[in-house]
Simulated scan of single mutants.
Amino acid sequence: MAVSIPLTEDEQAALTDGKAAIDQLLNRLADTPTPTGPTPQKITAPGSAQLLPIVAVRQGKAAQS
Rank of each mutant, 00 (worst) to 15 (best):
L25D: 00
T16E: 05
A2W: 07
Q50M: 08
L52R: 12
L29Y: 02
V55L: 13
T44G: 01
T16K: 05
Q64A: 15
D23I: 07
P6Q: 05
T39I: 02
R28S: 12
S65L: 13
L51Y: 10
T36K: 10
S48D: 10
M1R: 07
S4C: 10
P53W: 05
V57W: 11
A21D: 03
P6Y: 08
Q24N: 10
Q64G: 15
S48Q: 13
A49C: 02
K42E: 15
A62T: 14
T34K: 03
P35Y: 07
P40D: 01
T36I: 12
A30R: 06
K19V: 14
P38R: 02
T16I: 06
R28M: 09
A49R: 04
N27G: 08
A20C: 03
Q50K: 15
A20P: 05
D23F: 03
A21N: 02
D17S: 07
I54L: 15
T34I: 03
D10F: 09
Q24Y: 03
I22C: 06
I5L: 13
R28G: 04
P38W: 01
P35G: 01
E11V: 08
E9C: 05
L52V: 09
Q24A: 15
L26Y: 07
D31H: 05
P46F: 00
K19L: 14
A62Q: 14
E9S: 11
L25I: 03
P33E: 00
L51R: 12
T34W: 03
A20N: 06
I54W: 11
A62M: 14
K42C: 05
L52N: 08
I22W: 05
I5Q: 09
V55I: 15
P35D: 01
R58L: 10
V57C: 09
A13T: 09
K19E: 13
V57M: 13
A14S: 15
L15R: 13
L7D: 01
A56R: 14
T44H: 07
V57G: 07
D10Q: 15
P53K: 07
M1W: 07
S65G: 14
A2Q: 11
L15H: 10
G47M: 00
T32Y: 10
A14W: 04
T8R: 13
E11Y: 06
P53S: 04
A62N: 11
G37M: 04
A49W: 03
I5W: 11
T39P: 00
L29V: 12
A45I: 01
L15S: 06
S4F: 13
P38E: 02
L25G: 00
A20T: 11
I43V: 15
A56S: 12
S48R: 08
P33C: 02
L25M: 09
P53Q: 04
Q64H: 15
K61I: 12
Q41C: 03
A49I: 06
T32E: 09
D17G: 02
D31T: 13
L15A: 11
L26M: 14
A56H: 11
R28W: 06
R28Q: 13
A49H: 02
A20F: 04
R58K: 14
G37V: 04
N27M: 10
K19T: 11
V57L: 15
I22G: 00
S65F: 13
P33A: 01
K42F: 05
T32C: 02
